[in-house]
């Protein structure tokens, strides 16, 4: 069975590399529509990573909400605001070099932190599978308050977004 684990492990690392590459493309590609598509690829990659962490309900929710809904929103916004001719203007401003330097520095800093510190790893670390029932139990018992607050927040966002984006009635 070890060969199978190796194949699966290699698959996951490939998925991670694919998502990082897609993320880099999503940030640097000039044409915004392609950037949004690369971002969708990153989301699906991350859903795959969630699957590797045995969080399959979360992976499905991620695909459903992010790729299904948020991407639709982003692409609608891109379509409504993109004037055909102007995607030739350089997408990045003068900060590029400074931002790149900051990025590299912070990357190194975070990585050393995450590698150096000894995290309190549980012994049955990767083995436990979480059933949807336990998840629901946690969501509706221990975390019921944030659950209700989130629903209120979503309603207000819904109404707020409609009001902001509504064409004001020509009186």
């Amino acid at each position: 069975m070890t060969h199978l684990y190796d194949i699966v492990k290699f698959g996951i690392y490939a998925l991670m590399a694919f998502s990082v590459l897609a993320a880099i493309l999503a940030v640097t590609v000039r044409n915004l529509f392609h950037a949004a598509l690369c971002f969708a690829a990153v989301l699906i990659g991350i859903a795959g990573v969630f699957l590797s962490l045995h969080a399959d309900f979360l992976a499905m929710v991620q695909i459903l909400i992010y790729v299904g809904a948020v991407m639709t929103l982003v692409i609608f916004a891109i379509m409504l605001t993109e004037r055909f001719g102007d995607n030739s203007s350089p997408q990045n401003n003068s900060l590029t070099l400074a931002a790149f330097g900051l990025a590299i520095v912070s990357l190194i800093a975070f990585s050393t932190i995450s590698v150096k510190t000894r995290w309190p790893i549980q012994e049955n670390a990767g083995a436990l599978h979480l059933s949807v029932g336990e998840l629901a139990y946690a969501l509706l018992n221990t975390y019921v308050l944030p659950f209700e607050v989130i629903s209120v927040l979503l309603i207000t966002t819904l109404i707020g977004a409609v009001i902001i984006a509504k064409k004001d009635r020509v009186s």
Binding site: I44, M60, M71, T72, S131
Partner: peptide, 17 residues
């Protein structure tokens, strides 16, 4: 899958993309 149904709905929602 023990999230079979949600898998179906999630995957069929990606066709909008």
């Amino acid at each position: 899958l023990n999230v079979g149904l949600l898998f179906f709905i999630a995957i069929s929602s990606t066709t909008t993309l």
